[in-house]
Amino acid sequence: MSPAPDERDRIRAAMDRILQGAPQHSNGALTIVALAQEADVPRNALTQRHLDLKNDFYAQVRSRGQTPDSEIRLRQQIVKLKELRAEDTAELSQLRTDVDHLVRVVHQLTVENRQLRGALSQSASSVRVLPTQPHPNRTL
């Protein structure tokens, strides 16, 4: 599919309108999506056919000291992901500490269990096995 003959002109005009803050067909965001909408062209016209215009648009945005909206969103997402990573790191540290404590408890209980089994095996043991009582909901 070949581009419309006036496509580049429409994109340039749309760039001017967006950069002047007077969009007519889009929300005026400093993004390729808004530029494509403003120029009434498919987005892939800017990402595949007219890369020079896309790069020129972003260069003009940066030269005016502005940051493209897509970059702002990405920076916000980076901040959020760093916060989540810090939370995950703290949780992982706590879980490792908990595992260490649980290993110690299991070891202590294993030692006590061995001692009790040893005491049970001795004939003169003061430890006695108590009879078990049936569960109230269980039938015999």
Rank of each mutant, 00 (worst) to 15 (best):
V106F: 09
T89S: 13
R64E: 15
N55F: 04
E91K: 07
N44D: 11
S126D: 15
R10T: 04
L116A: 08
V41E: 00
K80R: 14
L116N: 11
A59L: 07
V33D: 04
Q66A: 11
N55P: 01
V106R: 02
R8F: 08
A86Y: 03
A59T: 06
R114Q: 13
P131R: 10
K54T: 10
N55G: 06
I18R: 00
Q66N: 13
P136F: 00
A29Y: 01
H107A: 13
V33I: 07
R8P: 05
T67V: 13
N44V: 06
D88M: 11
L102Y: 06
M15E: 08
Q108I: 09
V103T: 08
T97C: 11
V99N: 03
A36S: 09
Q76N: 11
V41C: 02
P136K: 00
V41T: 09
Q77M: 10
L74Y: 13
A22G: 02
N113L: 12
H107I: 03
P131S: 15
L53A: 01
M1R: 14
V111S: 02
D6S: 14
R8V: 14
R17E: 05
T47Q: 09
Q122S: 15
V129M: 08
A86D: 12
R10N: 10
R49D: 11
K80T: 08
K82M: 11
S93G: 09
R104P: 01
M15I: 14
A36N: 04
S126L: 12
T31H: 03
A86W: 08
T139K: 07
L140E: 14
L120Q: 05
G118L: 04
V106D: 05
T47V: 11
L30R: 01
S63R: 13
A119P: 04
D9I: 02
D9Q: 12
D56K: 00
